[in-house]
Amino acid sequence: MIPFLNLRAQWEAIKDEALPAAERVLASAQYVLGPEVAAFENEFAALCGVAHGIGVNTGTSSLHLALLAAGVGPGDEVITVPHTFVATVAAILYVGARPVFVDVEPGRMTMDPTLAAQAITPRTKVLLPVHLYGQTADMDPLLALAEAHGLTVIEDACQAHGAAYKGRPAGSLGAMACFSFYPGKNLGACGEGGMVVTADAALAEKLRMLRDWGAKKRYHHELLGYNYRMDGIQGAMLRVKLKRLPAWNDTRRAHAALYGQCLAEAGVTIPWQAPDCRHAFHLYVVRHPRRDALQARLQEAGVQTGLHYPVPVHLQPGYAGLGYGPGDFPASEAAAREVLSLPMCPFLTSDQVREVAGQVARITRELDA
């Protein structure tokens, strides 16, 4: 079986450094926040080209806190996309605001700036574009929109560790950016983790308070805060992995290039790479009109795949109260029917990439016959 993601191989590659790092945390008894988290915050913020990183317990928490720090609350609207993981939208609801969906661009599969412009109302407070699959949204027109209307831009960069837009790192483009360190991400914790990064010192101070019960000083609570702190061991593990992230991303890009060569005549639509982006290839997502059959046949052939995502958020039963329905966002709905994520990780071999591509080509020929 060719795995979709090989976390065991990743552990073998880092364990000689990771085990002593974990032991340092255990010996220090700094289990929550502490020096390892603080060091990781600084190192990851530097990768993103900003001054401040605020480590939290999950990517969802990073989105929640960024919206709170931006002052979003009941009566406000946040523009985002339905072709994303539900956490993007859940965080908007957590603060009592209304998610306003706009469709994605069919090629890039990120927020369409033209549609975003049409969705702005006097209640709009935030633009929340999602950098999907490792590629950033088209940010310059969104930033121009925000400036023209006095809006805050928050990047959902949970799939964009090490990506860039026109030479600028993901995380440096909006007022704040949110990252997830779920284990399967390009940079993943040994458990859960997340971070908000920002260049704004005042926002950073507010975010640090919000993640730690609203306090600057212990037992002095100035805000309604949350217990969203990052664990010390996660900070230590992420520091070990962060040093390897550039090389791991380069390997992902090499695998993507090889996939592109091997799949050029394979009967699937391969990912479109925007010329203004440096893709991090968190996922390698192809499209086929008979996606479900292709996925089932690949599983039979020993190839694990994933679906990101099979149901857009506006059609999820838990979000039916938002008032949207089938046909409202045709590009997102078409993607949900057709997308298929092929194996992608730094520990995939070139031979495995060729094998996956060969199986895809064989199966699509049979399906299209």
Rank of each mutant, 00 (worst) to 15 (best):
A13R: 05
A280P: 02
A266R: 02
A256F: 06
R98N: 05
P20S: 06
D231V: 08
T110A: 14
A21K: 04
C345T: 13
K185F: 13
D292M: 12
A146Q: 08
I79E: 05
P20I: 03
L242E: 11
T152D: 02
M344R: 00
V72P: 01
P275R: 08
F101Y: 09
E355P: 01
E265T: 15
L7E: 11
L348Y: 04
R297Y: 02
A170M: 03
L263T: 06
D200T: 10
R24D: 15
D292T: 12
V78Q: 03
V81M: 14
A247Y: 01
A293N: 05
L93A: 11
H83D: 13
Q261N: 08
R108N: 12
H221Q: 12
A202V: 10
L187E: 09
S341N: 13
E147L: 08
V285S: 13
T251E: 12
K206V: 07
Y133R: 09
W248T: 08
S61Y: 13
N6A: 11
G194F: 08
L367S: 09
R168G: 01
L210G: 01
Y31F: 15
M111I: 13
P310F: 12
P169F: 12
A18S: 09
V72F: 02
R229D: 07
E338W: 00
I270P: 10
L173R: 08
T198C: 06
G232H: 03
P312M: 01
P74Y: 03
A257P: 03
G232P: 02
Y94L: 10
V37P: 06
R337S: 12
R123W: 03
G71N: 00
V50P: 08
R337N: 07
K185A: 11
G184Q: 07
V196I: 15
A361R: 13
Q10N: 12
P122Y: 00
K206S: 07
L315I: 05
G358Q: 00
Y284A: 05
K241E: 14
P169C: 06
H52W: 14
A280N: 10
A18E: 12
E155G: 15
A254C: 05
L348M: 15
N186K: 00
Y309S: 07
G235F: 02
V360G: 06
D140H: 06
V303E: 01
G260V: 03
A201W: 09
